[in-house]
């Protein structure tokens, strides 16, 4: 369980939340996963450029702390709905990168057996009900999943990830209203990376913060620095507690930044190179987390290198697995449209 607390840190230190909450091992695992997300996406990007992946993909490089931090307090049984920029959520929730690569490569060994690709990546076995190609599409579904959790008294909580663009969709408002009305165990996580495709928050949204919307639905609205793992995890932790306690939903706005364009066809005309460089140089979530871990003596440079190498191998193996996997047969095209009757 996530709640196993770290007791071997300097006594009395006014440490950030996660260093009080989690064991060194869990914290190192979190770094491992953040690297896994980063390198997975870099590997996917490279495979894409080599023509091994078709379609498009939306990379979340730079947003790893947000995905990881939200998922830290979750159990395998808890569920998430994700977005088109959902690789990080999927990995943070526990998916295997080999099966994700296989999906991106369109193979039968992929999570969606080659039917979904990047935009619909899902691992139901670890509670990921799926990325979604429709902005805001997963939000009401998460509320429905939370309704199930409440009806079945399963103690499960449901996270709905979405971007800043979704906060102007009707589905967002309808879903938040119902979730609050019925006090459902759901947490709305807006990963605000500043742009809905090319349109900035300032140009699209009447309120300065997405979290400001929470007031309209009588739920807490929490803003965190999405590039600081501990801040994100702390907000998630509190929201999960509330949800499990039957106190209803929370809206978390995790302010972050994507390094890459909206998708692989983005020419980056709506933001400056300086702005991107600033985020990459000064606010990278992995670098910041590494520095903290080293500062608090949880890991050293060698340990970080070891993680990087392990992740690199995992990624290389995953790509090899995907390459070697079989493609679906055309004759099975119609499989999974309807539930097969046995």
């Amino acid at each position: 369980m996530a709640q196993a607390k770290t007791k071997d840190l300097p006594a009395g230190a006014n440490l950030p939340f996660i260093y009080r909450e989690y064991s060194a091992e869990r914290l190192k695992q979190a770094l491992h996963k953040m690297y896994l997300i980063r390198q997975f996406e870099e590997g996917a990007e490279e495979s894409y450029m080599r023509g091994l992946i078709h379609g498009t993909m939306h990379l979340s490089i730079g947003q790893e702390a947000s995905a990881m931090g939200i998922c830290m307090p979750l159990t395998n049984d808890d569920q998430i709905t994700s977005t088109h920029r959902g690789h990080g959520h999927c990995i943070a929730k526990g998916a295997e990168v080999s099966k994700m690569f296989a999906e991106f490569f369109g193979k039968t060994t992929g999570y969606c057996r080659g039917r979904g690709g990047s935009m619909h990546i899902a691992d139901v076995s670890t509670g990921n009900l799926g990325a979604n190609g429709i902005v805001g599409g997963g939000i009401p579904i998460a509320v429905g999943a939370a309704l199930t959790a409440k009806r079945l008294k399963s103690d499960r909580v449901v996270i709905s990830f979405f971007g800043d663009g979704a906060n102007n969709e009707g589905a967002f408002h309808e879903a938040l209203n119902m979730a609050s009305l019925w006090k459902l165990p759901v947490i709305f996580v807006c990963e605000n990376n500043g742009y809905g495709m090319s349109t900035s928050m300032a140009r699209s949204t009447a309120v300065p913060n997405v979290a400001d919307r929470a007031a309209a639905y009588a739920m807490p609205g929490v803003i965190v620095d999405g590039n600081v793992l501990s801040e994100v995890a702390e907000a998630s932790h509190e929201a999960v507690r509330r949800a499990r306690a039957g106190e209803g939903p929370t809206l978390i706005e995790s302010k972050t930044y994507r390094y890459r364009g909206h998708s692989k066809s983005d020419r980056n005309r709506y933001r400056t190179k300086e702005e991107i460089d600033d985020w990459m140089t000064n606010r990278d979530p992995i670098v910041r987390y590494e520095n903290e871990l080293m500062e608090f003596g949880i890991i050293d440079q060698a340990g970080i290198e070891a993680i990087r190498e392990a992740v690199a191998k995992e990624i290389a193996d995953g790509i090899e697995f995907a390459k070697a996997s079989p493609s679906p047969e055309i004759r099975n095209l119609e499989r999974y449209v309807y539930t097969e009757t046995v």
């Binding site: 709905t81 009401p140 998460a142 509320v143 429905g144 309704l147 408002h173 309808e174």
Partner: peptide, 28 residues
């Protein structure tokens, strides 16, 4: 009222909630 649920006038959200509930084990 737990099993015969009046929804707000929110067809999109309501339908989505039904879908989410169905996927996770209920029969709306």
């Amino acid at each position: 009222a737990d099993r015969v649920i009046d929804t707000p006038i929110s067809e999109l959200g309501g339908a989505g909630v039904a879908v989410g509930a169905a996927v996770t084990g209920l029969r709306p």
